[in-house]
Write a protein that binds this DNA or RNA. Structure first.
Length: 461
RNA sequence: GGCCUCGUGGCGGAGUGGUGACGCAGAGGACUGCAAAUCCUUGCACCCGAGUUCGAUUCUCGGCGAGGCCUCCA
């Protein structure tokens, strides 16, 4: 409990000491995926970054004292479009459910492969429509929202300090510079809280007619439901600062009459692929699934732990260039790390301090690498390594080897040593090669005292 | 146009007003029958210009370059 975390806060543009509202229940909200298609590696970054933060918070405040909420956005016009495209024969609601359930399952498989713990709660937008309607009702009631042309809109001008997060005062924005201003808006920056649905769009009954929520309101509703009106940390990608997070803040604060929505706002940087911007419009994005299970990237599949480490080799606020070269380097590092099981040991101070300093995973990984070298042949160091690696979620798992295989390999190793003594190199190498083909790597060493050859082996990861 | 990042050796990536982390790759070596693994040695980098200074990669200003947001996107 003595560790003090220092976190960079987008709200203040400063790195400050983190003090939870309630150390017995530290609360974090992270914007999750819209479930209409495979998640790409841009989605993987916040999942991994905030997973590290989750692990760190659990370590500092105790596992039972951290609540991590990450939403599933399952109402969205992109989902509707996908449902109509992929399931033209089904009734709309069933088609939508088919899309969202499949995508959600896939997302969970992907992030699990990336070594991410499950959030404490993972609420769905469609399970929180009533909460959204309640908040919208409040906003209309206290003059922060109005009804126009069948939509409920947030009245940005009604909020004195709108734009604090993005440092984007309303007056200074070029109104409608790149998007036509809808005539029914009182101000160009006003955004939709609720909009009416046609028959071929999903909708819910509300005081303003059968409709569906605007983009931002779900996070206000779900964060309040699970974390309260004011909570500790809100995270997401850099590109969400405006308008999404700005508008979440506006909705929540105006509905609840609070000065802040979350105390600390954290944003991870952008992801590029091989030096180029990844964008949906250009179609050059790489999905997590592609990396894990296909040979689309670099002509091979990549283990989840390699992807995770590659992601953590750059500080979360910096842009990251996802490249084959980077993945190869990550893989070489992991290959040098010992497999171990987390025991009761405490993580190394260097790793802890690095992470406590605004999630400096780069320094943490380097410290970890140094530990890995010390751990070579030192059980105590190995335990510290394991605990430290677990904090980052990059602990190579000890491959379970069944005893029959182990004794068979041991016998072959003994046989090989006999052959070596007889200088029968051909036969000895044959054994070595056959084992290698089965994924078993022999490692010859020398007993420091006797000078005898000592052979150990491991299952290649 | 507004707002905002970033620019360090082949690559990744720290850091500091006064000999220059570290990792990966590469090179050399030890060990080995040969490999692998392991260990040792090795890297003279800080976008450009001006300014401040005894001295700047580190501070200031100005360029140039890369990128992001302002519209669905992590």
């Amino acid at each position: 409990m003595s560790t003090t975390l220092r976190l960079y806060n987008t709200l203040t543009r400063e790195k400050t000491a983190f003090a939870p509202i309630d150390p017995q229940n530290v609360r974090m909200y992270v914007c999750g995926p819209t479930v209409y298609d495979y998640a790409h590696i841009g989605n993987a970054r916040p999942a991994i970054v905030f997973d590290v933060l989750f692990r760190l918070l659990r370590h500092v405040y105790g596992e039972a004292h951290v609540t991590y909420a990450r939403n599933i956005t399952d109402v969205d016009d992109k989902i509707n479009a996908r449902a109509l495209r992929d399931h033209p024969g089904l009734p709309l609601n069933e088609a939508i459910r088919a899309v969202t359930e499949k995508t959600e399952t896939q997302f969970h498989e992907d992030v699990a492969a990336l070594g991410c713990l499950e959030p404490t709660v993972e609420p769905r937008a469609t399970d929180n429509i009533a909460e959204m309607i309640e908040i919208i009702g409040r906003l209309i009631g206290n003059g922060h929202a109005y009804v126009a042309s069948g939509e409920v809109l947030f009245h940005t001008k009604s909020m004195r300090d709108y734009g604090q997060l993005s440092k984007r005062p309303l007056d200074e924005q070029q109104a409608g510079a790149r998007v036509a201003v809808d005539a029914h808006k009182k101000n160009p920056g006003d955004f939709v809280l609720w909009k009416l649905s046609s028959h071929n769009e999903p909708g819910w009954e509300s005081p303003w007619g059968r409709g569906r929520p605007g983009w931002h309101i779900e996070c206000s509703a779900m964060s309040r439901r699970y974390l309260g009106e004011v909570f500790d940390i809100h995270g997401g990608g850099l590109d969400l600062i405006f308008p999404h997070h700005e508008n979440e803040i506006a909705q929540s604060r105006c509905a609840h009459g609070t000065d802040v929505m979350a105390n600390v706002w954290m944003h991870n940087g952008f992801v590029q692929v091989e030096g180029r911007k990844m964008s949906k419009s250009e179609g050059n994005f790489v999905t997590i699934h592609d990396l894990l299970h296909t040979e689309k990237f670099g002509g091979r599949q990549w283990p989840g732990e390699v992807l995770r480490l590659a992601m953590l080799m750059t500080h979360y606020r910096e842009p990251i260039d996802f490249s084959v070269k980077r993945l190869e380097e990550a893989e070489r590092l992991i290959a040098k790390w010992p497999a171990a099981e987390a025991s009761g040991a405490l993580p190394c101070d260097t790793v802890m301090n690095a992470l406590a300093d605004d999630l400096n995973t780069v320094a943490a990984v380097q410290a970890l690498h140094a530990l890995a070298q010390e751990a070579h042949g030192d059980p105590d160091a190995l335990a510290v390594f394991a605990a430290s690696a677990a904090l980052l979620g990059v602990l190579p798992e000890k491959t379970e080897v069944d005893e029959a295989l182990a004794s068979a390999v041991d016998a072959l190793v003994a046989m090989r040593l006999e052959m070596l003594k007889a200088k029968n190199f051909a036969e000895a190498d044959k054994i070595r090669n056959e084992l290698a083909d089965k994924g078993i790597q022999l490692k010859d060493g020398k007993d420091p005292a006797t000078g005898e050859r000592v052979t150990t082996w491991e299952v290649k990861r």
